[in-house]
Amino acid sequence: MQKQQNIIAKTSIHCSLNELKLVRTFIANQLNQIHVCDNDVDMIVLSVDEICANLIKHALNLKPDETIEITLIHENGGIRVNILDHGISFNPVNYYEKSIQKLIHEKKKGGLGLMLVNKIMDKIDYQIEETYNVCSMYKRVTLC
């Protein structure tokens, strides 16, 4: 089946955790404009926040000159979000999830972000190229 894709919006942010709030507001505003239901908006906003926070902290090491590009696409009754960075490659598809019980026992604060994204999104792919990486996530949504 041929993909029906319509780019909704693009933005780019600097590599700073203070930019996360801007990303969340941007994604929510764009999805509200095309009448995506609130719960789906919240879940997509959270997933994008999680991926961007991971990139900022780990792949880009909080380097202020680095940027992350985010593209929102309306595709076959769902939303695709492509997140492009030029940092250290990391493939969350191959990420080994520890159990929550193990994280509690080890008193870990991290490890829940990708768990959330994997539960929320219907599909997540990671494309590693020579000079950039793209995390592409897709979720079917309901319009209200």
């Binding site: 996360l20 926070a53 604060k109 972000g113």
Partner: peptide
């Protein structure tokens, strides 16, 4: 008004304590 995994992780990390 909002919580991400970073917030959840803080709570989780103290459960054992």
């Amino acid at each position: 008004s909002y919580i991400s995994s970073a917030g959840l992780g803080v709570f989780m990390s103290y459960i054992q304590d």
